[in-house]
């Protein structure tokens, strides 16, 4: 280890070369509407879980689309499946189903011990 390692904190860059699409592809194959998100935040504004915790459903979707799936498995558990997000979305995305699919895929990957 170099003695100057402390000067190099963990990179904050989005590393597109490390794009992990294992969850994204699974979700998009089953819920095409997720393609059209414009990150308007309507869902987060109304989200039951988001008003009580740091849970941010818009950001989760965005992370997926940026190929970053770290720390997702704990975070996604916070969703309460109330469906309010789906009611406000201007792009008519079935967000509740997106969450369901993310959870499903995470469970698969975890059972394969690849996550």
């Amino acid at each position: 280890m170099s003695q100057f390692d402390f000067l190099k904190p963990k990179s904050r860059q989005i590393e597109f070369e490390q794009f992990d699409d294992r969850i994204l592809t699974f979700v998009l194959e089953r819920e095409r509407s997720f393609l059209t998100c414009i990150s308007c935040g309507g869902c987060t504004a109304t989200c039951s879980a988001g008003n009580l915790t740091s849970f941010n459903i818009r950001k989760i979707g965005l992370s997926l689309r940026r190929g970053s799936i770290n720390d997702l498995s704990d975070e996604i558990q916070k969703c309460m499946f109330c469906g309010k997000c789906t009611l406000v979305c201007p792009r008519d995305i079935n967000i509740r189903n997106v969450v369901l699919l993310i959870k499903k895929r995470i469970a698969q990957l975890e059972s394969e011990k690849t996550l």
């Binding site: 990150s39 935040g41 869902c43 987060t44 504004a45 989200c47 988001g50 941010n56 818009r58 950001k59």
Partner: peptide
Amino acid sequence: KAEDTLQGRP
């Protein structure tokens, strides 16, 4: 109620 999306907070 909205999300300030640039701050990432409701």
